[in-house]
Write a protein that binds this DNA or RNA. Sequence first.
DNA 1: TCTTGAGTTTGCGCCAGCGCAAATTGTCCC
DNA 2: GGGACAATTTGCGCTGGCGCAAACTCAAGA
Lengths: 233, 233
Amino acid sequence: MAALDRSLISRLPLFQGLTPDEQSEILRDARSSRYAKETAIFAQEAEAHSFFVLIAGHIRVVRTTPDGQQVIARYISEGEIFGVAAALGRTTYPASAVAAVDCVVLAWPNALWPDLARRFPVFGAATYRTVGSRLQETQTRVVEMSTEQVEQRVAHALLRLANQTGRKTDSGIEIDFPISRQDIAEMTGTTLHTVSRLLSKWEEKGIIVSGRQKVTVKDAHRLVVLAENRDKG
Amino acid sequence: MAALDRSLISRLPLFQGLTPDEQSEILRDARSSRYAKETAIFAQEAEAHSFFVLIAGHIRVVRTTPDGQQVIARYISEGEIFGVAAALGRTTYPASAVAAVDCVVLAWPNALWPDLARRFPVFGAATYRTVGSRLQETQTRVVEMSTEQVEQRVAHALLRLANQTGRKTDSGIEIDFPISRQDIAEMTGTTLHTVSRLLSKWEEKGIIVSGRQKVTVKDAHRLVVLAENRDKG
DNA sequence: TCTTGAGTTTGCGCCAGCGCAAATTGTCCC
DNA sequence: GGGACAATTTGCGCTGGCGCAAACTCAAGA
């Protein structure tokens, strides 16, 4: 690990509560690698060999159906742990992870997980907290897909992206990695056509501005209203 | 713990790999209780005080939206651990758990989790395996809701119920707790009307037989075909 | 600068499945 | 045994959003 990484890493929630020595000990076993934009970190159904922490970039987690349709499970932001099959006793990855932009990740061999979790309980606990919030988030998505209209779901998805990976600019909150209409459709269970129509409408109203693989939320408040509107607006 | 419970409990996957003494030690801290049909074991958003193992019965896990719509997250069968907020570092339950029939459950105070998990790693690992498969299952449900038609989703739901909680009878696989059309609708993101229509159609074709709060799968194979049909059948 | 291709927009027609409403049936309790 | 209620069935009309198709636009490379 380069010294540069260290100061950044020690600030991650995942490593809170660990002494610098303990952090070093954990990091000693990690291997760092780069992944070019649109390359895979791991593939769905592949034998799980490692778990990861994203140091720089953004990662798209994708499930592909037997007939080739894709669904985006979530985006991973900097500092998050992912590919934690080992911690959950799984032997294969349930989804693929693809770099949405050029990425830097740390990887630990799965075989080290039991030992790391035992020696550094706060590290294990932090990981399971992440798993817990992802489970809850996924369930929330099921609820959304069951009870909401497409417009509300897309609004929710944009808000979530803005919160999790948004970058404040003078013109609003910009999603700071390339995201296409198709991507948004795969996050919300609709088609790129419908997403395009919605974004156009919202842009007319001044709620967002959008371009090629780019969305900036200008008026989050009005987007929240759209997301919560139970009857048609 | 009554002796009766012990022989049953020691056979649960959750307690595999533990010696009888270790099992006793874990069980010593558990409190057993009964819940009458349709009563709540815990409520969504309530402070999480315990985690549970279902000894007898069936439990419905339900998420309710702010405007009162319900979505069934899953059913818990005998022997399963549930309400594991503690293991995932959450302080409240993300959903409600309601007894679908009269139930017997064991409960452990959350405060004991860290200690139990540390002293009996196989117990902790078994729990996290369960969490892992639930996460994966929930993600599968998101994929289904994104890519499948209602008919396929209902077919999938029935097959899952038949596998997880089905009881073999001479006339087929019967779901062995009361389940209404409304319940199936809340599992699949549709309405009781549509479920009713589908079940009627399938009954005509001899794939299932159904009655009031009761479904028996007679021809699982044809149900699988329906569940996998990507274009209309 | 020009070309090329991927990403996006928009129009149009259609239909799966929802909402509403009413009839029907089975079950539990008095 | 019979009433009452809950669950289910079924008809009907409507519409949100999909599928298809075509036009358009930007970004990158030659």
